[in-house]
Computed example of a mutant assay.
Amino acid sequence: MKLNKEDMINILKIMQHNTDTMLEMEEQNYENNKQYMRMEQQLFHEKWKVRFLTRRLREIAPHEALTEEELDEQIKGKQN
C-alpha cells in the first residue's frame, strides 16, 4: 500500500484532531476530579460538624430527641 502526500497529510490531521480531543477530555476530567474532591472535602467537614454538635447536645440535653427515629419513638411512647 503506497500513500501519497495528500493521504499522509489527511492522516496527520486526523491524528492531530484525535490528540487534541484526548487532551481536552483529560483536562475536563482533571477539573471534574478537582471539583469532586472539593465537594467530598466539604461533605466530610459538614458530617464532622453534625457529629460534633450531636455529641454536645447529648451532653447538654440527653433526654431530647436528636434524630427523626428518636422523635418517632418519643411520640409513640407518649401515645401509649
Score class of each variant (00 low, 15 high):
residue 4 N to M: 08
residue 5 K to G: 00
residue 6 E to C: 04
residue 6 E to H: 09
residue 6 E to M: 07
residue 6 E to F: 05
residue 8 M to E: 12
residue 8 M to W: 05
residue 9 I to N: 00
residue 9 I to Q: 06
residue 10 N to A: 15
residue 11 I to Y: 04
residue 12 L to P: 00
residue 12 L to E: 03
residue 13 K to S: 08
residue 14 I to D: 15
residue 14 I to P: 06
residue 14 I to A: 13
residue 15 M to H: 02
residue 15 M to G: 05
residue 15 M to P: 00
residue 15 M to I: 13
residue 16 Q to G: 10
residue 16 Q to W: 04
residue 17 H to I: 11
residue 17 H to L: 14
residue 17 H to V: 05
residue 17 H to F: 15
residue 18 N to R: 12
residue 20 D to E: 15
residue 21 T to Y: 04
residue 21 T to P: 07
residue 22 M to D: 08
residue 22 M to Q: 12
residue 23 L to D: 02
residue 23 L to K: 04
residue 23 L to V: 14
residue 24 E to G: 06
residue 24 E to L: 07
residue 24 E to H: 10
residue 24 E to C: 10
residue 24 E to N: 11
residue 24 E to M: 08
residue 24 E to Q: 08
residue 24 E to Y: 03
residue 25 M to V: 13
residue 25 M to D: 06
residue 25 M to Y: 11
residue 26 E to R: 04
residue 26 E to Y: 04
residue 26 E to V: 07
residue 26 E to D: 13
residue 27 E to V: 00
residue 27 E to N: 12
residue 27 E to C: 08
residue 27 E to M: 09
residue 28 Q to S: 14
residue 28 Q to C: 09
residue 28 Q to N: 15
residue 29 N to K: 14
residue 30 Y to N: 05
residue 30 Y to A: 10
residue 31 E to T: 03
residue 31 E to M: 08
residue 32 N to L: 15
residue 32 N to E: 09
residue 32 N to P: 01
residue 32 N to K: 10
residue 35 Q to H: 11
residue 35 Q to M: 12
residue 35 Q to N: 14
residue 35 Q to D: 11
residue 35 Q to V: 05
residue 37 M to L: 15
residue 37 M to V: 03
residue 38 R to W: 02
residue 38 R to Y: 12
residue 38 R to M: 13
residue 39 M to S: 07
residue 39 M to V: 11
residue 40 E to T: 05
residue 40 E to K: 11
residue 40 E to G: 02
residue 40 E to V: 01
residue 41 Q to L: 13
residue 41 Q to S: 14
residue 41 Q to E: 13
residue 42 Q to K: 14
residue 42 Q to Y: 04
residue 43 L to Y: 07
residue 44 F to D: 02
residue 45 H to A: 01
residue 45 H to L: 15
residue 45 H to S: 12
residue 45 H to K: 11
residue 45 H to R: 11
residue 46 E to N: 09
residue 49 K to I: 04
residue 49 K to Y: 04
residue 49 K to V: 03
residue 50 V to G: 00
residue 51 R to N: 14
residue 51 R to L: 14
residue 51 R to H: 12
residue 52 F to E: 13
residue 52 F to H: 12
residue 53 L to D: 10
residue 53 L to K: 10
residue 54 T to F: 06
residue 54 T to M: 09
residue 55 R to A: 13
residue 55 R to W: 09
residue 55 R to F: 12
residue 55 R to Y: 08
residue 56 R to G: 05
residue 56 R to Q: 13
residue 56 R to I: 08
residue 56 R to N: 08
residue 57 L to I: 02
residue 57 L to A: 14
residue 58 R to K: 14
residue 58 R to P: 00
residue 58 R to C: 05
residue 58 R to G: 02
residue 59 E to C: 07
residue 59 E to G: 06
residue 59 E to K: 02
residue 59 E to L: 10
residue 60 I to M: 13
residue 60 I to K: 15
residue 61 A to G: 07
residue 62 P to G: 01
residue 62 P to L: 06
residue 62 P to F: 03
residue 62 P to V: 01
residue 63 H to G: 04
residue 65 A to N: 00
residue 65 A to P: 03
residue 65 A to H: 07
residue 66 L to N: 01
residue 67 T to H: 02
residue 67 T to E: 00
residue 67 T to A: 06
residue 68 E to I: 01
residue 69 E to I: 08
residue 69 E to T: 02
residue 70 E to L: 06
residue 70 E to M: 05
residue 71 L to F: 04
residue 71 L to Y: 09
residue 72 D to E: 15
residue 72 D to V: 00
residue 72 D to F: 00
